[in-house]
Amino acid sequence: MNTVIDAHNISKVYNPTTIPVYAVNNVHLHLQKGEFTALVGPSGSGKTTLLNMIGGLDRPDEGNIFINGIDITKLSANELISFRLQNIGFVFQSFNLIPVLTAKENVEFIMQLQKASKQQREERVKTLFAQIGLQDKLNERPSRLSGGQQQRVAVARALASRPQFVLADEPTANLDTKSAFNLLDIMAKLNMEENITFLFSTHDQRVIDRARRVITLVDGRIVQDTAEVSTQHEEAAAVKT
């Protein structure tokens, strides 16, 4: 399997000169292509900070983050913008669609930034909206869509640029149960069928139950990673046989 995210010893400290608070403390994280991973932990455990650093929105105070072999901690602000556009898809907790654009335009916007042709954009939009099941809402403004529909458009937007992986920060936090399950079904399907890598922060049990790997963060440290547990189980099973 290909390593998509490779984070080494990353730390993020707030108030370093007065009373240092470690939002993320010496974290190692490796994510392979096609993983469907949940980053869990109580509020203030550092999930969003870790996600922001992996997404190139924030910089670690220590350590390095390699995305497909590129150390993004060494990139300038402008290089990071371009890197995010080409490699990372984002789904935010509060949807964050551009309110003045229609659902279709929101998705197209990213591809236009990538300078995709009109035909490429049209085809991609058609495919994505079929995948999220909103073909009939193409020309609706976000204000006319339900929360669940908006979040599905946000997923389509995250995938529009054909990113290396998608980072989702509490994607189901503002959704009702039905919409949350619907969204998770879509994400799981995309993961299974198109091998798209998902990493989402959550404390929603519905999401945790669907994740194939769960990383638990407490006080900025990884206290449990199911990938390591399953690897140990596999190793133990192999020894037994």
Partner: peptide
């Protein structure tokens, strides 16, 4: 927030 989101998605300065 909207401008921040646009920047996060890769909109250049």
């Amino acid at each position: 927030r909207e401008i921040g989101m646009m920047m996060a998605l890769g909109t250049s300065k």
